[in-house]
């Protein structure tokens, strides 16, 4: 065979298999047969191929050809034949329509949420802009102390305001002082030698005063 045989340099060798399997055209076949009748090498080569081919052919004819053609049945599914497990699987299986629908719904939800967040943020900004021109609430509540009024005067003003209330409130400076003592213990005895500023102070003012300090010093001595 041309380029295939090991013991054949014949130029007609390339047609060997085509001739063996009847794939050679009529005129070409006649030419090859004329050559085959005279070429001992091609005869032996062809005989070898034929002798190894025929057992395979016999095998096919004897054991394969009598076999019935397998009946191919494609299991087309009907709704009634679906098992429960398959129905569950189908329910959780990927469906493009549902997937795209869900994706669209999620996108709409995100857009609405974003719009609400942005609108609420812009409302706060407007309120802040409305508040911004005025002073801060803390600053508005602070009453600047008048420099011309001294501490004692300021304290007296506060005491006067407190006297309008039933409870006793210490002055702003008392925040650092300890808790007020019981009135009986802290109330000093009236000493006529100490000048009284006012009747209000004498009765209700329990703030720390120099008179009290002097009194305590005198008692301790």
């Amino acid at each position: 065979m041309k380029g295939l045989g090991t013991n054949n340099s014949c130029s007609h060798g390339g047609d060997m298999l085509a001739y063996l399997y009847s794939e050679m055209a009529g005129e070409e076949r006649e030419v090859f047969e004329v050559h085959l009748a005279d070429c001992g090498t091609c005869i032996d080569d062809f005989a070898e191929l034929s002798q190894s081919r025929y057992p395979v052919y016999e095998w096919k004819r004897t054991q394969f050809d009598p076999l019935p053609t397998p009946r191919v049945v494609i299991p087309f599914e009907t709704p009634g034949s679906i098992s429960l497990l398959d129905q569950i699987r189908r329910a959780f299986s990927f469906r493009p329509t549902l997937a795209f629908g869900g994706l669209g719904a999620a996108m709409i939800t995100v857009v609405i949420a974003g719009y609400l967040i942005l609108s609420s943020t812009s409302g706060d900004t407007e309120v802040a802009r409305e508040v911004e021109p005025s002073a801060s609430p803390t600053r508005a509540l602070v009453v600047p102390s008048t420099p011309s009024v001294d501490a004692t005067t300021q304290e007296r003003i506060e005491v006067a305001v407190r006297n309008e209330r039933p409870t006793v409130v210490r002055a702003s400076t008392s925040a650092k002082s300890p808790a007020p003592k019981p009135k009986s213990a802290r109330q000093p005895k009236r000493d006529d030698s100490i000048p009284v500023m006012s009747s209000i102070e004498e009765e209700d003012d329990d703030s720390l005063r120099l008179a009290d300090i002097f009194e305590e010093i005198g008692t301790s001595e």
Binding site: L4, L49, Q51
Partner: peptide, 26 residues
Amino acid sequence: STVKSRLYTALKQLKSKLDRLPVEVI
């Protein structure tokens, strides 16, 4: 050419394998 070469080689190898068997079988 490759297809023919493979079939040629296959038949030659088959011939070699079958020749080793007793004449009564083949």
